[in-house]
């Protein structure tokens, strides 16, 4: 009995017990499938058949040929644009809720997540009803005798609008949670010391909440980069994104090896974005004390 208790008190055993199940889950359901994708990406496909003929042709195609590289760059640009717009929109909203929301703070934040009470397809269909050629906006314009807005009809702009609508709650929530713990009295101190409101914002509020903002950017950037349903339904004939091309390889085209290489490139690009953002976070500057920094 004593021996067992001693074993349980051993920090290494406790660490292994706590971390083990999670680590096993990640190894089984994330690392092994990812590893198989990496292996497939160095093979080739012929008439729907994977052939273990090791080569780097798939990577040459994805990174070297415009017909694939264009989609990678387009998706990165779309993700950056959507993240930037979400950021500009969500910051003032989150700020107002956190500072002036009073006892309705939680309700207001939850309201922003109301669209999540339905499925993504329903939300996209709703967007079609608003943005499409026979959507609310254009029908109303036509009723008033005006020309319909062409950019809202099955275009990349329509895709972007749909994506912004989908992911804004994530950005808003991340920034709000950061501001929730922010001491607004610091702004008064800055003001007392002669700082104008904008300077106080950029030198106090923004850096102290950068971690929440960075998390918000990651939460919007990655799903936008990986979005497939929204561009497919709102994007029109020119709306295909990198993930749509990737899906195509695993779907009707059956070119799994090329699709695997696209998957690996996508994973690396996503990790690179997270890494870059992580490098910009200064835990001490952000007022984070949890890591003993």
């Amino acid at each position: 009995m004593k021996g067992r208790r001693a074993l349980l008190l051993d920090p290494r055993v406790r660490f292994a017990t706590l971390v083990g199940p999670g680590a096993l889950f990640i190894v089984l359901f994330l690392l092994i499938p990812l590893l198989s994708i990496v292996v497939f990406s160095f093979w080739r496909t012929e008439s729907y058949e994977l052939i273990s003929d090791w080569n780097v042709n798939n990577y040459e195609a994805v990174l070297g040929e415009w017909i694939y590289l264009k989609f990678l760059l387009k998706s990165l640009a779309m993700a950056a644009a959507v993240s930037a717009i979400c950021l500009v929109y969500a910051w003032p909203c989150a700020y107002l809720i956190a500072k002036h929301g009073g006892r309705y703070k939680l309700v207001l934040v939850l309201l922003t997540a109301a669209p999540f009470l339905t499925g993504i397809l329903l939300r996209i269909t709703a967007m079609q009803q608003i943005l499409g050629p026979i959507g609310l906006v254009n029908m109303a314009l036509m009723e008033l005798g005006a020309q319909p807005i062409q950019v809202l009809m099955y275009t990349n702009i329509a895709s972007a609008v749909g994506l912004i609508y989908l992911w804004i709650p994530f950005m808003l929530l991340a920034i709000y949670l950061s501001l929730f713990n922010f001491n607004f009295e610091l702004l008064e101190v800055a003001k007392v010391n002669g700082a104008r409101p904008w300077r106080a914002f950029f030198e106090v509020t923004w850096p102290l909440n950068w971690m929440g903002t960075a998390i918000g950017i990651v939460l919007v950037f990655i799903p936008t980069f990986a979005a497939s349903v929204t561009p497919r339904f709102l994007g029109g004939p020119d709306g295909s994104m990198f993930v749509n091309r990737l899906e195509h390889q695993f779907g009707s085209a059956g070119t799994w090896a090329l699709g695997s290489a696209m998957g690996v490139v996508m994973c690396v690009a996503s990790l690179a974005v997270i890494f870059v953002l992580w490098r910009t976070v200064r835990l001490r500057r952000a007022g984070f004390t949890g890591a003993g920094a």
Binding site: S47, I67, Y68, Q249, A253, G254, T255
Partner: peptide, 15 residues
Amino acid sequence: SSPEKWERIWSAVEA
């Protein structure tokens, strides 16, 4: 007849 060739044609059209 060649899914690989057809995929390239379609990707070129999409791009």
